[in-house]
Design a protein around this nucleic acid. Structure first.
Lengths: 208, 208, 208, 208
DNA sequence: TATGAATGAGACTTCATTCAT
DNA sequence: AATGAATGAAGTCTCATTCAT
């Protein structure tokens, strides 16, 4: 009852505040993009005054970049294939695609914001854009490794084309769902895409 | 001599001013998105004062919507299949895809801006977004018609899935090129995509 | 009585607004220096909203520079020796000095602000500082011409030293009055200074 | 071994921290003036967090005042005439002037900041300004004493005028060097000034 | 057909300062 | 003896928009 430090925390909890700010920012930036994200809006959503946001982040650019970094890691750990062995290569590819689709349905902010940033062309490129493109490259490379492992017959150029096509399809289907809303069955679409890409890989690995 | 205007015209050419404003706006909005496009920036680029922009357009929303409309029409007439007869269905589909790819390389602003608008989620949806989604639907329907004509065996649902997949791939490949730059051969990628989609259609039309 | 456009001017008078802004700014900047001059304070003093100030001036730097320019011109025309002929060289020099002293008592803002700017050392030098130093150089040259005319025996280096010393003394006495207030008889001090400088010139022109 | 502090000291050296803060502040305030000196900038330059500055100084005003005090003392001990006997009165005056000039070249921050503060007119006068004007008065009195000793024939008013003129010239020449930079030989200028003032004193002491 | 000028709201950011630890 | 975190006020400047001419 007379507890010395019960609910009344308030002052000074850097780590938690930082999280609150980032949480608010993903939500807003994921919906409105870079320019549409105002510090005042973030401040209102997280409850901290604007000046406190600047204690944790150098400027808006830094904040958006931090958001991209954090939500990529979150997305990555959500995707992380739980069991990637077992089944035919088609089954495995399909399972992976379904997994990615699910993660994008659950947490679309990362990719939505990332694509908005990627499409922009501004004189002083936001750091968040750079970060997004970097993690995107990392992802591309990981997928390429999987493809190379599944289809040893493919040369490097073929693997790259295949990966590019796979990623582009994923992006496009994601955009489609963002536009059309929840009625779109993203998992089914990704599974279809997985099959198509798998066929393509098989044909490539065969003769050409 | 027989000019209807009395003394010097020179100033006062509504149509041309309107074009200049729209030209400036596509460029800026195509690069920076809705929020990133300021009336002041448009004014600076087209040379007309901000108040003149408001003489031609009700507000920013109206301006952006007009840009979308005009650049969609421009894009449409650039794409308009010059001769859609002749050749196998694969050849025709491939030619159409190459054609679209070329138009997107030449004038990417329309789709870039459109996708940016489409990805945003804001309380008061900009009219430009609505317009983009409408013309997108129109496009979808046109493609569906072509698909239905080429593969009479497909039912409506199959045609829709096929079209969705075709468009999504195109979007994704476009995004890929926007990110990676001129080194990406969009035409080749679109041709590959056309082939994949054609195979998919053929398989669908067959049994499943 | 029923005059169509009597007192009720208000909207849109660019020239007058510009003057009002400049008037307010000299007063504030003359008392508080560059950093101490806030746009909000200028806005409050001149009655125009801050955003209107930015219609007339690119930014704060531009505003301060404009102030320096205008008040230099005002000061110059206030100083402009009414009749510089007649009397001995000492009498003429003394009259000029008294004239300058009077102008500095009447309108000290220009020099006070200028000296404050001159003393500052900041990474991005304010344009106002540059302007002040330029007009200062012009003044220096004009004084040197007078000195050369009055004492034809002096070589260029001697004229320069003399002028520098004359200006430095004036600056120092001005600062003294700024510190000690109205009780200081600046005119008398300047006349004393004029005499000293005149002696110095005479001695220089003689042997060494 | 015999250190009174138990385990590691390292942190917690009040005196040194205070010095670091003051060192940083002279540098910044000497270059940017009162308003231009932000606690954040001082913090960045001295490496201590802003809150630590407030542990050592009540507020910004207090900090600036402390800087003025300390740098006046430093300047004073740098000037302190090493041997003020010997030679004619002219030689002695000249030597003193040269000494002062050297000190101002070596450490101009004190006077630069002081003059900036002195020129400002703000509702709530900073304590630093008051302190500067006080030490300035002290200096004035000391010089007056020297003058009275060297020229016993002068009455109080004459000594005051002489001192005022001497100080004003020094200020003005200092400002000149601050503007024109290292190329100005301040020592030579001060020696010239000393001679002029000496002549003036002699003439005053004679008849008038 | 246009535009110079104005304007309130709000953008990002820094300010001096406090307080609990 | 110090500091991480917070905060309200204020800083400069841009925003979309209006209105009289």
């Amino acid at each position: 009852m007379s507890s010395p430090q019960p609910t009344r925390r308030k002052r000074a909890n850097g780590v938690e505040s930082r999280q609150r700010i980032l949480d608010a920012t993903v939500e807003i930036a994921g919906e409105r993009g870079y320019d549409g994200t105002s510090i005042a809006a973030v401040s209102a959503k997280c409850g901290l005054p604007a000046s406190s946001i600047y204690w944790h982040f150098k400027d808006k650019d830094d904040l958006i970049a931090a958001v991209i970094e954090r939500s990529f890691e979150a997305w990555l750990s959500a995707v992380e294939l739980p069991g990637d062995e077992g089944g035919t290569s088609l089954e495995r590819v399909t399972a992976m695609a379904a997994n990615v689709a699910k993660s994008l349905v659950d947490a679309p902010d990362f990719l939505r914001l990332g694509l908005m940033l990627a499409l922009e062309r501004r004189p002083a490129e936001p750091r968040g854009r750079t970060v997004f493109l970097q993690v995107r490259d990392i992802t591309h490379r990981k997928i390429a490794e999987v493809a190379a492992a599944l289809f040893p017959g493919l040369d490097e150029a073929a693997v790259d084309t295949l990966t590019t096509y796979a990623v582009a399809g994923a992006d496009g289907l994601f955009v489609h769902r963002e536009i059309k809303g929840d009625s779109v069955d993203l998992v089914a679409m990704f599974e279809l895409h997985a099959q198509v890409v798998h066929d393509m890989a098989a044909r490539m690995a065969a003769g050409k």
